[in-house]
Simulated assay, not measured.
Amino acid sequence: MSVTINAHQLGRLIDKVRGHIGNEYIEVLHGIRLDVDTTHLHAVASDQYTVAAARYRLNADQQGQAPWARTIPADWLKPLREWTGAHAGADTVTITTAAGRVDFATTHTEFRVPVTDDQDFPNWRTLLRSITLHVPDKFIFPAVDSRLLARWADTSDIIRVHVTSDLKALMVFGEDFIGAQMPMRYAGIGPCEDETFEKALALWPTLDQDEENTSTPDAEMPAADDEMGTIPEMVEALLQQTLRSTTDSLGAPSTDPGAIASFALAGVNSWSAYRFLNALHQADPRLAAQTVADLAEELEAGDFSESAWDIAIKAGHDPVAWRDDYEAHLKKLAAEAAQAA
């Protein structure tokens, strides 16, 4: 039984969940569970107070295999992560199970981890599924440990949180990630177990004493910068432009080769940008997200043409010659179109 994943994605799976590993006194939780089903490779960890599961979609030729799972002991995670990080992000890692061990191999080297084949692990799928069945309370006011909240920092830049009641777990969702955090009462340390939202709010009577803003009861937080680009938005825009360019090129007048060429070029560039973005996202999701965000700011500023000119010169190119060649090309197309007419 084996699956493949690139080195960077394997490292990201480990990073996303390693903060949720249980301590050495609970052996079944003192490590990361690699769990393969018919479609995904999962990395799962839990410390009783939180549970986190990150996933990676298997290649089509590896889907449909018999499920398997092994727990990588916590003591082996640091050297495994160092071994993974020593490879290029795009290097393919083959993960294979054998009696008493899990093997990680690339074309360069191999790393073997001893494991207990029949070691138990909580049924994390059933646990998380059971949380989704709770109906949200009207007034939700759970008590949570702020130190546990920090464990979600490596999950994703943006996460969504679903809360159902004061005494049930919070659900956390990110990109290819799901998790849950138990309220403080579960740990037996909750100082706010009998406190309601109304009681807590009553401790802040001065909130009603803002004389300068009594006319704005629906005041909102300062608007966030929603112009920041995201990978899903960029992917959608590039695919739309690819399809739109194809449609426009088919509908362009046959007597205008310049228009047809422009539409075709726009489609080629959009598709090329999508493929590069998709490859970068697979190799380094964080770099891809930052690149898309930076690109959105550059496009918003509108000075990318000047930047391209400067970059071309620094790279040793001649943008003046490029411009002259392009203008000559346009004149040639115009002359051909006039002759054809």
Rank of each mutant, 00 (worst) to 15 (best):
V135M: 06
V135G: 03
P136G: 12
K138N: 14
F139V: 07
F139P: 08
P142N: 13
A143Q: 02
A143F: 07
V144E: 05
D145Y: 05
D145M: 09
S146T: 03
R147T: 05
L148P: 13
L149H: 03
A150H: 13
R151S: 06
R151K: 15
W152L: 15
T155S: 09
S156L: 13
D157W: 12
D157P: 15
D157V: 02
I158Y: 09
H162G: 04
V163A: 14
T164G: 02
T164L: 01
S165K: 03
S165C: 06
L167G: 01
K168A: 01
A169S: 15
L170W: 04
V172N: 00
V172R: 00
F173W: 12
F173M: 02
G174V: 14
G174N: 04
E175G: 02
D176T: 03
D176L: 01
F177I: 01
F177M: 03
G179D: 09
G179R: 03
P183F: 15
P183N: 12
M184I: 05
M184Y: 00
M184V: 03
R185I: 14
Y186T: 08
A187M: 08
A187E: 02
I189L: 07
G190R: 03
G190N: 11
P191F: 09
C192Q: 09
E193Y: 07
D194G: 07
E195T: 11
E195Y: 14
F197S: 11
F197Q: 11
A200F: 15
A200Q: 06
A200K: 10
A200S: 08
L201A: 15
L203M: 07
L203S: 04
W204H: 03
W204N: 02
P205D: 13
P205R: 00
T214N: 01
S215R: 04
T216H: 01
T216N: 01
P217L: 11
P217I: 13
D218A: 10
D218L: 11
D218M: 12
E220P: 00
E220R: 07
D226F: 11
E227D: 07
M228K: 08
